[in-house]
Nucleic acid binder design. Sequence first.
DNA 1: TCTGTTACTAGAGTCAATCTAGTTAGTTGA
DNA 2: TCAACTAACTAGATTGACTCTAGTAACAGA
Lengths: 153, 153
Amino acid sequence: MDESREGLVDLVRSAGLRVTAARVAVLHVLSRHPHADTDTVIRHVRGELGSVSPQAVYNVLAAFVEAGLVRRIEPAGSVALFELRVADNHHHVVCRRCGSVQDVDCAVGARPCLTPSEAHGYVLDEAEVTYWGICPSCQSRRTTRPGALQEHR
Amino acid sequence: MDESREGLVDLVRSAGLRVTAARVAVLHVLSRHPHADTDTVIRHVRGELGSVSPQAVYNVLAAFVEAGLVRRIEPAGSVALFELRVADNHHHVVCRRCGSVQDVDCAVGARPCLTPSEAHGYVLDEAEVTYWGICPSCQSRRTTRPGALQEHR
DNA sequence: TCTGTTACTAGAGTCAATCTAGTTAGTTGA
DNA sequence: TCAACTAACTAGATTGACTCTAGTAACAGA
């Protein structure tokens, strides 16, 4: 997957950000682990680079979100999750048991894809849809892991 | 509003829970402060009862959510908010600046009100819609309060 | 290569939420 | 009405994601 490294470098630069090893590594991790939480990103970045401070990863993720390269989602009961898909306006389906997350294409595409009957004067720019349910693997294994609302690692 | 106290007591009892002063007070606070966070509930319950431990309020709220009396929502970047409206399947509009929350009626009513094109095998029971935008008062006062994503107190 | 600025490291700090052990108080049945 | 059983509350420590700050390292334009 090393030819995509070039693309990742360009992606960072095109956002007006300095190209650093940590930033490229974070993008690389997110490309292989969609909906990863910060801890998952840190561990995989360390696998690529050796030692990286948690704060560096927090900084990188915040800079990417700010620059629009990365989208941050935060399903109820979960820590922040990060994903590279930002161009489209897709939604998410979340498992109530294990917290696994999958993308769901938005039927409309453009934001906001839905309009409420009564917006109370709010100027809306996004309709975020989270589908809640039970994932296939939690349906088969009947055991509940309480408080395990986290991304599959 | 003391005649509704009776109703609140019945509500607690009908959920199979013991009736305590803390529980009735929490329901009373939530009836007057929809989308209140835990800290807001604690302060108002103390205003009614005198001293109540934070843990008691956490316990009460958790018991109510478990019993289906109270709904817990958690918009991204916000602490947990609680509301009494649980019978209908309504949604929320959240201000990106000040974090204020308003209810939005669901056009469909029954859960889940939306069905994704591809559910990835998940058995869905709820489609949670969060509309993001700028509330009327934040539109007029142009100042941004960074990190102020909290319920109006 | 030099230099200014941005990014990273390390370590302390914040805060919502949780856990545990001991005490208090609703509720049920005598 | 009064025990006795058990659920609920108090107090205090603890967790864990996330933030802040000061000092150091390294990217990028001149």
